[in-house]
Design a protein around this nucleic acid. Structure first.
Lengths: 354, 354
DNA sequence: CTGAAAGCGCTTACAG
DNA sequence: CTGAAAGCGCTTACAG
């Protein structure tokens, strides 16, 4: 009677079929050491009993939990959904679950949450870094997602190339005075993107960079960025390092009565969820998160296998350099759209003309 | 030599101190069955050896993993960061880890991912529901976060009261013709919010409801909502059921040369990450996610304790009804701001006046 | 206050 | 092809 309350295990299956648990284990694992028809009967019985393998036992025995930790600097970051979804999906495909942890942009918290993940027995950790922090060596395989300019092993989008993409687009549309809007001058990612943009100025095009945090430090949080002044000074495009910044620019420009894209083009970065929703929808650059996640998870599972196989101590001469970098191209997303060619006569009053 | 490669366990501590593992276990668990100084020596040794308890062993023995599953309908949903952060934080406080899963807005996928979570041995599951789906009975405690109008046990924000809050605000500012913008007419949450809004129309105020999905079904995705027409028809405020919809309205209105909030007020819902970033920043309504998460996690841990204690079968007469509902008040976030009083003379050209 | 022993569910050599 | 046995790291009655 009470047996219906408790989850079935291998012993139950074995008892019902009068075989040994070892055979059940082998049959269910598909190791092929079991005769086909016995294996079939075992699988059928497992199915009848709604058997689900107990991971705790397996983990204890094999020393592997098939769980990965995902450490994020700030879960509230708008890019997080893309990252989490991609990692979860890649991990699930590789047979791993994903335990999340929020390091709250804080190095000591980061150490602490990694500790908690290790307690929980994760086999490896994916860490998303911010603002040039480094991660101390933990006793488990680690994959880092950040900028390629970050020291150490990393997988990341090619932010520099993404910057080139967007600048090529703007130059191709005929823009020659382009305002680059950054947010935080300390961000490696943002500097990479801006570096890429600047590297593609051509045909006499010029740019100027402003940083939101610097402007706010002077005039207070949420202050205008003075974009109407740049418009009057002849700038015809704003290239922001993120969609968040682009959105701020877009609303400020529209609010000043300057039409987009007729009089001013605006581009962003990251293709955040609302980018297609605003009017005009935002031309932006997208990271291939699915690929980045796949590479990170593959690297991790490979390291986990190696470690499980005991390839720990690199005896003899040290082999290849320990730094491994991989960067994934970004792609331009051209929408309805917020950036357009300089073919229309530029109006000089900045007003919205019917 | 090789011992430095392997994680220390209780046996190692016991051997080093020449005591039994049972005593180590008791000392580390703080059960008080161990003399204070022995307990101190054991803790010191554990510390020296960098001992971290192996959860796999504990899980196997106690039948509890101290891991909760978090099932989301769509990780890419912009509300997800708030939810995930709150759940992770509450769970961590209660000593639980959080395994994420994405049901991709799909009932069969939802069943499948819940199955995978159970395989991994989660002690309970938090499910965020969408669009009136129900969740089948799984063999583990479940907490559902959704609308209070959803059948079954739920914790949620009081969306109806949130709607009242925003309408009270607009009426108080003097608005009398208010456009309510919904997205999906099938959403229980959105209908609750709109119901609350309508319930507070007073002083001869009137409203009209439009649904983005319906407009798009007629004119194609991304089409204008015709808000300038509503402005010309005398509407002075748009109350959207989400910040995403509010953002779309805001950019359309600004793009039409109608100034916000001088000529048209706009409000949203959810206080998404970019709401303070746009200009003018968005007046919105916020759910108290921290409280909702705390209630959900508490309910779950309580149910887990009960089940562990064996209070399974409710013998004798059935007690209180199985449906438990809890709804948490929302709060108005008034910003710089996108909604303002009807004190200024209304201009009739809809133009932006310097 | 401390220890010997059993057992949670699984996998893996090893024998037959 | 199949089974008996050991053991992963822990906790929990039970005895002393």
């Amino acid at each position: 009677m009470a047996s219906s309350r408790t989850r079935p295990n291998m012993s139950l299956i074995a008892a019902r079929l009068d075989v040994s648990v070892a055979t059940v284990s082998n049959a269910l694992a598909g190791k092929g050491r079991v005769s086909p028809d016995l294996a079939a009967r075992i699988r059928a019985m497992a199915n009848d009993l709604c058997y689900v393998p107990g991971m705790a036992g397996r983990a204890l025995r094999t020393g592997r939990s098939y769980v990965l930790g995902l450490v994020l600097p700030d879960i509230a970051n708008p890019l997080f959904p893309q990252i989490a979804q991609a990692i979860e999906s890649s991990a699930a495909e590789a047979g791993y679950g994903v335990l999340i942890a929020d390091s709250r942009n804080n190095v000591s918290t980061q150490t602490e949450v990694i500790g908690r993940l290790l307690e929980r027995g994760v086999d490896g950790v994916v860490i998303v870094l911010r603002r040039g922090t480094r991660v101390a060596d933990v006793g488990t395989p680690v994959a880092v997602i950040d900028s390629p300019s970050t020291p150490g092993n990393t997988v990341s989008a090619d932010h520099w190339q993404g910057g080139q993409l967007v600048m090529d687009h703007l130059i191709g549309l005929g823009h020659r005075k382009i305002l680059i809007i950054g947010n935080n001058p300390d961000s490696i990612v943002q500097n990479d993107r801006i570096g890429g943009m600047k590297s593609r100025l051509s045909n006499g095009a010029e740019s100027e960079v402003i940083w939101v945090e610097k402007v706010e430090a002077r005039h207070g949080p949420g202050c205008p960025l003075g974009l109407a002044d740049y418009y009057r000074a002849g700038f015809t495009a704003c290239s922001a390092v993120s969609d968040l910044t682009a959105l701020r620019a877009l609303t400020e420009i529209l609010g000043a009565g300057i039409s987009v894209p007729e009089n001013m083009s605006v581009t962003g970065f990251d293709d955040l969820v609302w980018s297609p929703v605003v009017r005009p929808s935002l031309t932006t650059v997208r990271m291939d998160m699915a690929t980045i996640a796949r590479i990170a998870v593959e690297a991790l599972t490979l390291a986990i296998e190696r470690r499980a196989a005991g390839d720990d101590l690199p005896k003899g001469p040290v082999k290849a350099p320990p730094h491994h970098k991989e960067s994934v191209p970004m792609s331009l997303v051209i929408r309805q759209s917020s950036a357009r060619a300089m073919t229309t006569q530029r109006t000089n009053n900045g007003g919205y003309s019917k």
